[in-house]
Every structure is written in C-alpha cells, then in structure tokens.
Design a protein around this nucleic acid. Sequence first.
RNA 1: GCGCCUGUAGCUCAGCUGGAUAGAGCAACGGACUUCUAAUCCGUAGGUCGGGGGUUCGAAUCUUCCCAGGCGCGCCA
Length: 553
Amino acid sequence: MKSLIREAVVKAWDKACSMELFSSADIPVFDVSDTKNKDHGDIAANIAMVSAKVLKKAPLKIAEILTELIDEDFIEKIEIAGPGFINFFIRKSSFPPMLGEIFEKGENFGSNEYGLGKKIMVEFVSANPTGPLHIGHGRGAAVGDATASVLKKCGYEVTREYYINDSGRQIKTLGNSVYLRYLELMGKEIDFPQDHYQGDYISDIAKELENKYGRSLLENDENESVSICAKYAADSILKGIEEDLNAFNVIFDNWYSEQSLYDSNKVFSTIEFFENKNLIYEKDGAKWFRTTDYGDEKDRVVVRSNGDTTYFASDISYHMDKFQRGFNELVDVWGADHHGYINRIKACIEASGHDSSDFHVILVQLVTLLRSGKLVQMSTRSGEFDTLKEVVDEVGVDAARFFFLMRSYDSGLDFDLDLAKKKSSENPVYYVQYVHARISSIIEKAEKDFSYTENDIMGADLSLLDKDEEIELIKTLMKYKEAVLNAGKEKQPHRVTFYLMELAGSFHSYYNMHKVLTEDKGLSCSRLYLVKAVKEVVKNGLNLLGVSAPEKM
RNA sequence: GCGCCUGUAGCUCAGCUGGAUAGAGCAACGGACUUCUAAUCCGUAGGUCGGGGGUUCGAAUCUUCCCAGGCGCGCCA
C-alpha cells in the first residue's frame, strides 16, 4: 500500500515538473509512513516539507500542487495537515482483497528479497565445552536462532554455526580438573586448585572415565592421561550442550572446531599472511598485530613470548575462514562482556581487505533470574539452578524463548520464573499463542456445527469485511512484512515479538467485538477468511521465534 | 582515567535511519462470561522521555557536556 502511495506521489511530482510548476526535477528522499492518529488518515507523506528548500516554495503550497495531481481509485481523499503533511485516506474496500496474498504465499508470506543472493553466517552460543550452558547462553541461543530465521525470510542464504573452543588452555584445565577428580576416585589425596572447574559435572565425568578405563589411566604417562580426560570431557560436555540446544529447538548447520584450524595449519598461515603485509611485528619476544592501524585502542598479541598462539590468533583465522568459505556477511552473537573484542576483530577484517561493515556483532546483555521477585544467585556453588536446561525444564521451551526475545538484546533482562510459568493474562507468551488456539477452535466449530467448508471460506465475499476493527486487523496483518524486513535489516528479532503482541491485541479486540460464527453464512465465511489469515500470520511469526502455535490451550 | 551499553508512566519495557497530541503490558480503579476458549475485552487514571546547551520548519530520536547504573579495558578465553 505504501509503495502504491509512493508511486502516486512520484507520478504527481513528475507531472508537476513537466507542467513547470516545480523548478527541480530531482525528487528528494521522503517518507511514506503509517499514521498514528486516525484523523491523519491511513498513510502520510512528508514530501512537501522535505522539498521546501530545493523548490523554494512553502510546504503547504507544494502539498497543494501535488495533491491536485494525484488521482487514484484506491484513495478516498487526501488532506493537507499540520506543517505540510499529505494525509491519504484509503478506500475501505481496498483492504480486504489484500488478505489473498497471505494464503497465496502461505509460509512465505512476509518474506522479502533484501538479502537475496547473499550468504550470511550467524555464529552463536559458541560456549566453551567446559561446562553446561547457563541462562545467558540461552538468551544468545534464542536471539541467534531467531535472527537466523528472520534473515532467511529476508532472502539470505543462512548458516547457523557453533564455534567450538576445543583448543588452548581452558581445555587443558578441563582435562586436569577431570584427571584430579579421577585420582580422587582412585583414592588419592588431591589438592584441587581454585582456578579449575568446580562443578559436580566434573566428578560425574570422572566416574564415566572410571567405568570406561578402570584404573588404567593411572598407569599411563600423566600428560597422556590428562589429554585423554580432556578429550573425553570436552566431547561429553559438548554432547550435553548439543542435547540441551536441541531440546531448546536450536539446531546448528555446522559445528566448527577451533582445533581444526590448527590441524589444517590455517592459524599459522593466517599469521604469515599478515606478517607479509607487515601488519604483525615482534616486540618483547611476542608477535603483535597492528590493530591500531585500523582503529583499535592498542595492538594485540597473537603469539606469546613462550611461543603459544593466543585465542585471538585462532579467532582471526576463523573469521578469515568464514569469508573464504564464501559468506558475504557475518553475524556474531556475543555476551556483552566481550564488547572490548569487537574493534580488534573488525581491525583484522579491514586489514584482510574485507569490509568491516559486513561484520555485525550482536551484543546480548546480561540475564538475571528472578524467583518470587528475588534475584537467584548465579553462582555454581549455590544449590539453585542457573543452567539453561533447568530453566527450560521448569518453564517450557515456548515461554523461555519468548521471554528471551521479548526485549531488545541490548537491554538487560530480568527473567521472572514465576511470570514465565503463569498461565494468565500477565504472561505475554500465552497472549499470542491464545490467538492461534482460539482461531483453531472457531474453525473447528465452523466445520462441525455449521458445516462450512474450506471452499465456502476461501470463496467468501470479502466486501462484507467493512467493520472498523476488521479494517484495522487487516492493516495490522499487512504490517507483518515490514516487521520482518526491519527485524532483518537491523538484526533485531524482538521486532517480530512486538509485532505479534500488537497483532494479538488487534485480534482479541475484534474477537470480543464481533462474532465470527453466525447463522448468516456469507458473513460468517468472510470473517472466517479473515480469522484464518490471522492464524496464518501468527503461526508464521511464532515460527520465526521458534515458539509453537498450539491448536488448543 | 578511557571505551561500549543503558536511563521513557509506580514496575517491566517499545518507540531511537528526525515527523503531527510520546505508546504497550503489569500493578491501581470501574465495568463485560445464558456467547466462537474470560489465558480475553472495554473504560479511567498515570509523563520535566536522567539534566543543561546545540543543530532545524520539527528532537525521546542527531550533536556536545554533565549526572546515575551495568560491563569491559591481559603475552586469559
């Protein structure tokens, strides 16, 4: 609709130019937007104000000229208001036919071609395989997954990837932690260091190793045993992570191992590549990347003076590899505490000749858990849970995902466990899902009690949809496309969540105001048509969020 | 000290690529179930958009300086 208005305005502009009413032929950038206020019609354009300067005419005069040159069937009337807004009132009857698109496109309704022809990778969670996922990872998982879904709907070819930090010091520490617990099981006195992994899951893994190897690990060389422990523990924890994610409806296309970057020599060749470009230099026995050349605050070490590469080194290599694999754009979902890392990665991307604007970091802010209005301690030592699995087990996948996506990721989130479980009006998940269940129930009744068939509904006379609430609902439905596009452009999946809450509100109002099923078959079927369209869009949107659309509640 | 994020109704937050009278949910108050699911709806009340300057036809939105909170500033990952 907006694009039709835009076309009409452009047409009028050209006409005005050819009639020499306007001096300039270049049409300035202008907005065509939905109005907030009904008195302002359905759609407003600000072209008169925007072009006042170039045309050297008063906005009201420009608006007057343009409106006289616009003549379209679907426009009922045009008004000039305020400082020069042109307000368009759309003929009511032009709204209901728009619903057809929803059924024609089905699952593809809402999709657009914004990212067509582009490959994009969304890398998210990527938690170290040294312990179970906690609630913060859950937020990252929900945000990353929904972002990926939205991007796909925006035409991108999307890959969801998990980067496994299965190399380096923390894996050694993990192996050591497990080995020590294993020794403990073998009856040895141990001294368990504070900086090792404290959780009970470490002892559980040690027990598994006992079952598998008996006492034989004692006989091996210690280094070898530790590395067996490390490998086993990382695999086992990673498997648990994958299970928890699957249970959370998050499926990755690819699991990418950091170690593989070393095995294939990619880390080394990346360093060499930048050394040849004179972007890596030696100082104090270490190798430094000249990230300050590209806007970073200080240069960063890639190879320590003891010869070990840093995490940063493999991470550069990893990001280079992403581009080499043919991705045009990269999205990384990180915890907010990693924000200091952005500039150095961007620096390397620029240094490698890629455009850092193709690299988007979604910084997900902290999650805190609330029970009975009180903060749940997030320490692993306390008896209270903080793992993703426990939260999902308690509140369910739908509520958890919806809550994570209910606000902008750069706002902190207080996850209220009691609210998430509550089956009442306070809980927004059900507010949206209820729409789907209600409509399902109406349709079932229409078929059973009234014997209205699918054909009756699809062939309904849409001109009967003329109530204000119906037009409102149709307008809201059509806004879905815009919500998806903006969510994709901005990489902000919460826009879809907010849209769904708006649509749900619009539907519930309508439902309470007008009965769908009546003895009047014609009217009933046209309303069923409308309501079915709502059902489609709700399902479509919930699907993007990874939340189910129940038939019954 | 420097950098990033945040500050909008009593609470939790949208709105931030500049647009008209700043929105929603919860909480509060008053109403609506012989009805397609009341997990719902309708209404009332609630605001110096943290504060001051600047940019312009127009600022919650852009800019600058302050104030407050969170996070980050390793040859850790």
